Computed example of a mutant assay.
Amino acid sequence: VEGNKAQRGDAVAGRRWCRLPGTLLLLLAYVGYLLLGSTAFWALEGPAERHSAQQLLQDKWELLGNYTCLKGPALERLIQAYKSGLTLQGNATSLGRWDFVGSFFFSISAITTIGYGNLSPSTVSAQIFCIFFALFGIPLNLILLNRIGHLMLSGVQRCAKRLGEKLHWTCALVTGLLLFLLLPPFLFSVIEGWTYEEGFYYSFVTLSTIGFGDYVIGMNPDLTYPSWYKNLVSVWILFGMAWLALVINLCITLLENSSDLCQCGKKKSKELEQELMDCNKNTSPRPDDVENCSKIGGQEHDNTDI
């Protein structure tokens, strides 16, 4: 029986690994879709960002020339520009939120439904494109995450086969914790200047798609980020979400099994109580038995008198 179970397990794992070519094609389609979205957002939002930067510089010089008579509309434009992420750096402004790399990272945050909220399209054309891009991108993202999750689980099962079938979940959890939650905060601490706790908080909020937006990578205008940084974080988000989905499914399974055990225990306790009640009914004397015993006792008493 155990041999048959092992053979069935190997067959299932083999079928999962047979899906690898299809998953690679799906991954290529996913990356191509992201590149398409990045190019579109770059083309639609880039000119608007550059125009806003020029306007911000003009407002700055107007305020410096007339600081004794501060104008309300100009100050409001400066505040809105700062909220949208544009900052002044001497005679220039910090761009890069809607360059190709920034657009790629926004595309990832859109179709993974993280939605940090610190960056959003401002032009009507980009907003309309974002609707259709997310409409088809979100299902594609879910399908790819499901495929990657199953492949990751199959790989862990193969690696942990010698350790025993019950330990493969432990290996998956430990490996995932290291790669997706425990080690990335060190990278964020070095590049972003965050504490380890802040990096860990950002990692979980991102992979769980909560996406508060209070911590977002690559947004400090005082720092110079490596060109590979956002691309590496995008790959980390994709595989990290697939791993966390496996953990969430495991938690759901454990909760469902625990509820089934509780219901089973309640059912068995009720059956036991019913059996005890039936047993008590069977062992208790019936009225007819009591009457017969009294009659027999009376006859014996009469015979004794005789």
Rank of each mutant, 00 (worst) to 15 (best):
residue 191 I to P: 04
residue 272 L to W: 12
residue 126 A to C: 11
residue 27 L to N: 04
residue 258 S to V: 06
residue 119 L to C: 01
residue 298 G to L: 10
residue 197 E to N: 11
residue 157 Q to P: 01
residue 61 W to P: 00
residue 296 I to Q: 13
residue 32 G to K: 03
residue 31 V to G: 10
residue 246 L to R: 14
residue 14 G to I: 04
residue 284 S to T: 12
residue 85 G to H: 00
residue 77 R to I: 00
residue 114 I to D: 11
residue 20 L to V: 14
residue 214 D to C: 00
residue 215 Y to P: 00
residue 283 T to Y: 11
residue 253 T to F: 09
residue 277 M to G: 07
residue 25 L to W: 13
residue 77 R to W: 03
residue 167 L to I: 01
residue 25 L to Q: 09
residue 115 G to Y: 02
residue 306 I to M: 03
residue 147 R to L: 12
residue 151 L to V: 06
residue 15 R to D: 12
residue 142 L to P: 01
residue 269 S to D: 14
residue 238 L to Q: 07
residue 276 L to S: 10
residue 106 F to R: 01
residue 223 L to N: 08
residue 229 Y to F: 15
residue 269 S to E: 13
residue 254 L to E: 12
residue 49 E to P: 02
residue 105 F to Q: 08
residue 96 G to M: 00
residue 217 I to R: 07
residue 97 R to D: 07
residue 34 L to I: 01
residue 207 L to E: 09
residue 153 L to P: 01
residue 136 F to K: 02
residue 15 R to V: 09
residue 247 V to R: 02
residue 153 L to I: 09
residue 157 Q to C: 08
residue 233 V to R: 04
residue 43 A to V: 09
residue 94 S to L: 00
residue 214 D to E: 02
residue 216 V to M: 09
residue 219 M to N: 10
residue 206 T to Y: 02
residue 119 L to I: 01
residue 208 S to W: 01
residue 154 S to K: 02
residue 153 L to E: 14
residue 199 G to A: 02
residue 218 G to N: 12
residue 300 E to D: 06
residue 107 S to E: 03
residue 115 G to L: 05
residue 78 L to G: 12
residue 218 G to F: 11
residue 96 G to T: 00
residue 242 A to N: 05
residue 225 Y to L: 01
residue 127 Q to T: 13
residue 282 N to V: 11
residue 22 G to N: 09
residue 33 Y to Q: 04
residue 150 H to D: 15
residue 291 E to F: 07
residue 224 T to M: 05
residue 257 N to E: 15
residue 191 I to T: 10
residue 33 Y to N: 02
residue 162 R to D: 04
residue 43 A to S: 11
residue 47 P to D: 09
residue 214 D to Q: 03
residue 95 L to N: 00
residue 149 G to A: 14
residue 137 G to L: 05
residue 225 Y to H: 07
residue 275 E to Q: 15
residue 77 R to V: 03
residue 44 L to Y: 14
residue 212 F to L: 12
residue 89 Q to C: 06
residue 281 K to C: 08
residue 223 L to S: 10
residue 72 G to Q: 11
residue 261 L to A: 14
residue 83 K to R: 11
residue 204 F to N: 08
residue 142 L to G: 10
residue 88 L to E: 08
residue 53 A to R: 03
residue 260 D to F: 07
residue 177 L to Y: 12
residue 121 P to A: 02
residue 216 V to C: 08
residue 259 S to E: 14
residue 192 E to S: 08
residue 129 F to R: 12
residue 11 A to C: 04
residue 198 E to Y: 00
residue 55 Q to S: 13
residue 63 L to W: 10
residue 180 F to Q: 09
residue 95 L to Q: 00
residue 193 G to A: 05
residue 180 F to E: 05
residue 79 I to S: 05
residue 14 G to S: 09
residue 241 M to F: 02
residue 268 K to F: 07
residue 243 W to G: 10
residue 258 S to E: 13
residue 17 W to R: 07
residue 121 P to T: 05
residue 111 I to E: 05
residue 21 P to Y: 09
residue 7 Q to A: 15
residue 27 L to H: 06
residue 75 L to A: 05
residue 83 K to N: 04
residue 52 S to Q: 15
residue 135 L to A: 15
residue 142 L to E: 12
residue 211 G to N: 04
residue 184 P to N: 06
residue 208 S to E: 01
residue 209 T to V: 10
residue 134 A to W: 01
residue 261 L to C: 11
residue 144 L to M: 10
residue 69 C to P: 00
residue 38 S to T: 14
residue 162 R to F: 11
residue 120 S to R: 13
residue 125 S to C: 08
residue 126 A to N: 15
residue 296 I to T: 06
residue 95 L to V: 00
